[in-house]
């Protein structure tokens, strides 16, 4: 048994109660949604909060609803399995459905939530270990030590953004709502992330991620998600790629977005894809995008197999682009 450290349990029944509870002791409280990330981390001694605030009873966090414009609002507490199998998500945002459906295992997808996935702790082979193991190592830059073992001279933690859903959400231009006693703010998902593996998001300690809003899909939106992992289930990505393309009636690119995860602390939006505009997404265009991604993406030893992961950026990007699936608005 890996004993959990003791804590005080708070289980608010409404968003209002939740933000007040969180506002009372922001630095000492952690939020528990599905628990699939937080509890293993607590069992590893990575966190020992004074309070754990459970989100399950907060009705405002649940559900998936349509926006008047034809987008979707997904509650932060919506289970990943629900996101993966919701017909509207599957029809309009197939890359998100696929990403959510590829998280870990069936049980974890039923427990874990989209809000929790967006706020997933960064991962690193030197960090996601037991307290005994980390003690034997002497700690690392992210926790209890002065040294980064991934980038030995580095002064910033490069633990990896290892969640599946951020890349497609960024590709779709989704935003998140953060609520605290201080007020409510909305951020594009891309802006939720910060480039520091110690804490790779800008959610303040007193904020809760209440919802994810997906804009209505453009006409002729095509998207895809590819996940590379060692094992076909119960595994985090070693590389994840989301792609979204808007094409005009003639099949010419209007907008192309490629987002790569499982590199450093940030999901990386591949730059320079304007070159594909106004032309068909031909084999040559896809090669150009793949080459740009290959140049810009540098997997690190934080997740291992970095040389191979670098080698496969281009083919996996090509695969994603070749597999673009249409959004069906009428779904």
């Amino acid at each position: 048994m890996l004993p959990l450290p003791a804590f005080e349990w708070v289980s608010p029944g409404s968003l209002d109660e939740l933000v007040r509870a969180l506002g009372e002791s922001p630095g000492e409280s952690l939020l528990l949604a599905g628990g699939t990330d937080l509890l293993p981390n607590m069992k590893h001694g990575l966190f020992a909060p004074r309070r754990v605030i459970g989100l399950r009873r907060v009705r405002e966090l649940r559900g998936i609803a349509e926006t008047p414009a034809g987008g979707l609002v997904i509650g932060g507490g919506a289970p990943l399995d629900r996101v993966a199998t919701d017909p509207r998500v599957m029809a309009r945002y197939p890359a998100l459905a696929r990403a959510a459906g590829l998280v870990a295992s069936p049980q974890i997808r039923r427990m874990g939530t989209i809000g929790g996935n967006l706020c997933l702790e960064t991962r690193c082979v030197y960090y996601n270990q037991t307290a005994f193991w980390r003690g034997a190592l002497g700690g690392c830059l992210k926790k209890d030590g002065p040294t980064c073992f991934v980038v030995p001279q580095g002064r910033r933690c490069v633990a990896a953004m290892s969640a599946d859903t951020p890349a497609p959400l960024i590709a779709y231009g989704a935003s998140v709502e953060l609520v605290s006693v201080r007020g409510t703010r909305t951020l594009p998902v891309a802006k939720l992330f910060a480039g520091d593996g110690v804490k790779n998001n800008v959610r303040a300690a007193d904020e809760v991620l209440t919802k994810v809003e997906l804009p209505p899909p453009a006409e002729r939106l095509f998207s895809a998600y590819e996940k590379v992992r060692s094992r076909a289930a119960i595994d985090f990505p070693l590389l994840s790629i989301a792609a979204a393309a808007v094409l005009d009636a003639g099949g010419h690119v209007v907008e192309l977005t490629v987002v790569v995860g499982a590199l450093g602390a940030l999901p990386r939006v591949v730059r320079g894809l304007e070159i594909t505009r106004a032309a068909p997404l031909s084999r040559e265009a896809i090669d150009l995008v793949a080459e740009a991604a290959h140049t810009q993406c540098n997997p690190l030893s934080s997740l291992g197999a970095e040389d191979w992961r670098k080698d496969i950026v281009a083919p996996v990007v090509r695969r994603a682009l070749a597999g673009l699936a249409p959004s069906r608005i009428a779904g």
């Binding site: 082979v125 270990q129 060692s230 094992r231 076909a232 119960i234």
Partner: peptide
Amino acid sequence: ILEEHLVRPDGLHRGPSLLDYRMPTSLD
């Protein structure tokens, strides 16, 4: 295909867990 019981040069086990020591699932 999958499994390696690795000890690092500093003597630490590479990843003493069923997440890091990857035993195949029904899908693999």
